[in-house]
Design a protein around this nucleic acid. Structure first.
Lengths: 237, 237
DNA sequence: TGCTTCGTTTGGTTTGAACCAATTACGGCA
DNA sequence: TGCCGTAATTGGTTCAAACCAAACGAAGCA
């Protein structure tokens, strides 16, 4: 779309200007004229280039941000978060702003207590469902992506096992952030078959502790898993 | 609530103005000062009355409309669509399913750790904002509803003070559930002036501990508040 | 009475400007 | 070389003004 619909000399064109900016920018993003992770021109620059007020650009960017196509950081700039190859998979908007360390902190708060509650409250049926996921995890050899997905399912079942819908809702946010983190970060590079084997032993021990209703043992395994994740994280920074 | 938090003479208070308008208007709607189906004053009128620009009023109305509290018709006016007797209204879907005990459990998990993080990470500006809310709380004599709302704001500021967006997102779910709980349950019957005074002392001590960056003291006050809530809860069931 | 018309009111959009706060970039000092 | 403070950049917020289009209302006409 050229500038044909752009009010070129103070002409008033109500309702069309923001739309025009949105369309222009989203086209440039989808066609990767602005590539993924790339920084957009500054708002002031865009306003000048497109011949509109900065306010109008901001209104357009607001909507692009709501659609999850960009992300803004004060003092830094606006960055393309849209990934044309991405699975889409609607993650909650908060998830994008969560750093790896913040994620670990939150897991450290929730997971040990969650584990305790789950061990106490899980029904036999839920434990059965957990064992099914566990056996799928143990079948994985080298597919890191599949393993991560199963891990998530495993954790979610534990959260459900607490019987506390509020805790489950919170933990779903955590899992959203974790998924986002795995996508952008380089966890997967470190999920070698050898490391997967280590995790498999850990989850196996965790499951046995749950099945035996051994609270302390389960909580201990959960912490170990957390520490292991943290170790991988710190190797990067 | 008077205009006490309103920038009265050109004072700049970023991020606070829209929030102030939203709070003012939503309070008037909830208290039925603006009854259901009734027409609000015009945007220009509101802007003048509240001493802010029409732009700011519009931004606030945008958000109230998004929450489903009002509906706007060009050329006609803005109308209240909020029904105080109607259940639904803008709480997240999970909140409704959360029992009082489950809420307490979740608070017990999150709040102590949240307090620690907040004491470490809060900026002077955030502590200042906290003190503003605290002084409003101390001004409350017998209005339990107002006190509960301020309590919520106090807690939310602490969650923000952790600097962890994931923690904040989770805690917002907790606050949603808490609000729902207060609405349906009978907490307010027990918030007598005498009990409000007790809470005021508690929050005062909590704030002092935060301002002094005393982690253990703050965490202790937080637990006390939790236990007090729990005591009220158990008197009922 | 019933209809049209025209001015007024009201929400909707856009512009331009100023200032704040977070971040980054740079240059000088140790 | 390495660190720290300052200046510049960037997004975030608020204000003031102007104009548009939908809706309303009252005056005037048939």
């Amino acid at each position: 779309m050229a500038n044909s619909s752009l009010p070129s000399s103070g002409a008033y064109l109500p309702g069309a200007t923001v739309k025009y900016v949105i369309e222009t920018l989203s086209t440039r993003i989808v066609t990767q004229e602005y590539a993924s992770e790339e920084r957009l021109p500054s708002e002031r620059q865009l306003a000048q280039d497109l011949g509109v007020a900065r306010n109008t650009v901001r209104e357009a960017l607001d909507q692009l941000e709501a659609r999850g196509m960009i992300r803004r950081r004060a003092g830094s700039g606006s960055f393309v978060t849209y990934d044309p190859d991405g699975e889409s998979s609607a993650t909650s908007p908060v998830a994008a702003d969560v750093g790896p360390l913040q994620l670990q902190v939150m897991r450290g708060i929730l997971e040990p207590e969650m584990m305790r509650l789950a061990v106490i409250n899980m029904t036999p049926r839920q434990i059965e469902a957990l064992s099914v996921v566990l056996s799928k995890m143990e079948a994985v050899q080298a597919d890191a992506t599949a393993f991560v997905r199963l891990e998530e399912e495993f954790h979610r079942l534990i959260a459900e096992g607490t019987g506390n819908p509020l805790l489950l809702a919170c933990y779903n946010l955590v899992l959203d952030a974790r998924r986002q983190s795995f996508r952008t970060a380089m966890y997967r590079r470190h999920l070698t078959p050898a490391r997967i084997a280590i995790y498999q032993r850990g989850y196996n021990g965790l499951f046995n502790a749950i099945a035996a209703r051994d609270i302390e043992e389960a909580s201990e395994f959960m912490k170990l898993s957390l520490i292991e994740d943290q170790r991988i994280l710190l190797q990067e920074d």
